[in-house]
Design a binder for these strands. Structure first.
Lengths: 234, 234
DNA sequence: TATAATAAATGTAAAAAATACATTCATTAT
DNA sequence: ATAATGAATGTATTTTTTACATTTATTATA
């Protein structure tokens, strides 16, 4: 639970239902997490995931999207339920369960101003601060899930801009798997899946020669999924 | 939500938190699901998963185990959180989210009497009745998860008695994957993982020759897991 | 305008893993 | 003694994964 609306702990006479968002981004070859400085007591000033109570008339997914919108300005973000955290003593004072959802966003797209207003900051995933409650546990679980999913779904594309180069994609997968990959084998594998399309443009920000830009082909992806394919990318 | 404690729908002024259990068993070569006949209004007499509200002073996992204990008499059952179902209109009348957990149990061990008292019945998974609310969706999601997990963890062992034969194990995997496997390749693969131990006993219930019994070796399993192994079994 | 520098792009051979497939074995019942 | 039954076993082929070094396109600068 992240948004506590008064500043005194109270007795456990009611079950609260919250959602917390684990927001991943990818920037300059690094996988990053968006963390927030708590504005309310208790634990004011501590680092925390962003979250909110789930409203009575609100779907779970909608609650997650609402939090994302309020904090980053982004809509229709890729978001997936991770796990529900429900240890009876996870939040001292309240009895509160939290449905953790993780989001993948394209850092170049988010609304910087909104993020700043919320006292938020991007941290590299291998240099995270201590977070309140069980939030570090949530992040570690989400990282595991991300690694796992990246192996079987082309989930990584959510973290890149619409047009990206193969070296960029490789660098993302290296950040997720936390190990280096062979450029030839990676390219071979990714192209063999037939889910990215070569464009007639080059990105020249990282080399004189320039690297061709590609875009993700959702149609082919859907077809591949239906055919029962496995999608191991690296 | 399954256990509703009065018989009139009421307005949505409070968030309820329930847990529903998807109980899988394996018997005579078939993967089965334990379903229950609802005892209370609304929807009395309909087939349903078994569930309960989560108590204020109760961990989520404990709530699941409690339900299992009450309905099958079994304790320390293998159980895993599946997903939280939180559509705002999933339960007409109440606003109730449900944390679905799935359990794998050894059918020969469960307490038949307790199951009967609860008006429960085992259904083959490809012959399930219509269940209340979103329970059919929960079951389908759980089956997908089970298939997925069975591929990467030797999860299937939870569904077999402690001593089992390789043909039995194969038959279980065939039931989970819903396709036939090659006996030679299956045996080769399973033995190569080094997680089952041959015993000096045979099971002669299915053949004159008898098949050697094996038991699962949790220590080797843990070692293998730590070494980062993948565990694809079929 | 030639040259140096840089990251992008490419192919092949070896190793490992997955698959396809048919026969013999141990035991019991007749 | 023999027929019947499911259990157990090995090998060759195909597919997938891995390891590894050179050339290419472009820009900056000498």
């Amino acid at each position: 639970m992240t948004q506590i609306t008064n500043d005194l702990y109270q007795v456990k006479e009611k079950m609260y239902v919250a959602t917390d968002c684990i927001i991943f981004g990818f920037h300059q070859g690094k996988l990053k997490l968006l963390v927030f400085k708590r504005k309310l007591e208790p634990l004011q000033g501590e680092w925390s995931l962003i979250g909110s109570f789930v409203q009575l008339d609100e779907d779970l997914e909608v609650a997650g999207q609402r939090v994302l919108k309020e904090t980053t300005g982004l809509e229709d973000v890729f978001m997936q339920q991770l796990k529900t955290y429900g240890r009876k003593d996870r939040d001292p004072g309240y009895r509160c369960i939290s449905i953790a959802q993780y989001a993948l966003i394209r850092i170049d797209e988010y609304d910087e101003k909104l993020v700043e207003e919320h006292g938020a900051r991007w941290y590299e995933i291998d240099d995270l601060p201590v977070l309140i409650l069980d939030h570090n546990e949530m992040v570690q679980d989400a990282l595991l899930q991300l690694k796992h999913n990246a192996r079987y779904k082309p989930i990584g594309f959510e973290l890149l801009p619409e047009k990206f180069t193969i070296p960029q994609l490789q660098s993302l997968y290296e950040a997720i798997y936390q190990r280096e990959l062979d450029a030839r084998n990676f390219r071979k594998k990714v192209l063999s899946l037939n889910v990215i399309e070569k464009l007639d443009e080059k990105d020249k920000t990282t080399s004189k020669r320039g690297a061709f830009l590609y875009k993700f082909n959702y149609d082919n992806y859907q077809k591949l999924l239906k055919s029962g394919y496995n999608f191991e990318i690296a």
